[in-house]
Amino acid sequence: MATTYDVSASRQTFAPVRLGLSLLANYRAALRERHERRQLRARLSDLSDMALHDIGISRGEIDYVAANRDVDPRGVQSAR
């Protein structure tokens, strides 16, 4: 008894699985990013006004800094 498999059919079967896994990975990354933003916001909120001044931000900029971690609110470019 010979059994044959159609390879083209299996590619079509795996495409929705890959899409589902990709969506789950994107969702997990978004949750992780949200969690990190919330942690950063909480840590910055716990600092005194003097400590915030030392790192160059004001209390009113905490939400902006937490949401835009890659952007320096002072406009200083890092020397990478």
Rank of each mutant, 00 (worst) to 15 (best):
Y5N: 10
Y5R: 11
Y5Q: 05
V7N: 07
V7H: 03
V7A: 01
V7D: 02
V7E: 05
V7P: 04
S8Y: 02
S8V: 01
A9G: 04
S10L: 15
S10C: 07
R11M: 14
Q12N: 06
F14E: 01
F14P: 09
A15D: 06
P16G: 10
V17S: 10
V17W: 10
V17K: 14
L19T: 07
L19P: 00
L19C: 03
G20M: 09
L21G: 12
L21D: 12
L21C: 10
L21I: 08
S22K: 09
L23F: 02
L23H: 07
A25L: 13
A25E: 12
A25P: 08
N26Q: 15
N26L: 15
N26M: 08
N26H: 10
Y27F: 14
R28E: 06
R28H: 11
A29I: 00
A29R: 06
A30Y: 10
A30P: 06
A30S: 13
R32H: 04
E33L: 05
E33V: 03
E33W: 00
E33C: 04
E33P: 01
R34S: 03
R34A: 11
H35Y: 06
H35A: 03
H35Q: 09
R37V: 01
R37P: 05
R37F: 05
R37L: 05
R38E: 12
R38G: 01
R38W: 03
R38H: 04
Q39M: 15
L40G: 01
L40S: 06
L40T: 12
R41L: 02
A42W: 05
A42S: 15
A42F: 09
A42P: 11
A42Y: 10
R43P: 04
R43N: 13
R43W: 09
L44H: 05
L44C: 09
L44Q: 07
L44V: 12
S45C: 12
S45Q: 15
S45V: 02
S45M: 04
D46F: 08
D46I: 00
L47F: 02
S48Y: 13
D49K: 09
D49Y: 02
M50N: 13
M50P: 09
M50V: 14
M50L: 13
M50Y: 09
A51M: 13
L52E: 13
H53T: 09
H53L: 11
H53K: 13
I55Q: 03
G56M: 07
G56N: 04
I57W: 06
S58P: 05
R59H: 13
R59Y: 13
G60Y: 08
E61L: 03
E61R: 00
E61H: 01
I62G: 00
I62Y: 02
D63A: 14
Y64S: 11
Y64D: 05
Y64E: 12
Y64W: 15
Y64V: 09
V65P: 07
A66W: 07
A66C: 08
A66E: 02
A67M: 09
A67W: 03
A67K: 14
N68R: 08
R69K: 14
R69S: 03
D70G: 08
V71H: 01
D72Q: 01
P73K: 05
P73D: 09
P73L: 03
R74K: 15
G75I: 06
V76M: 08
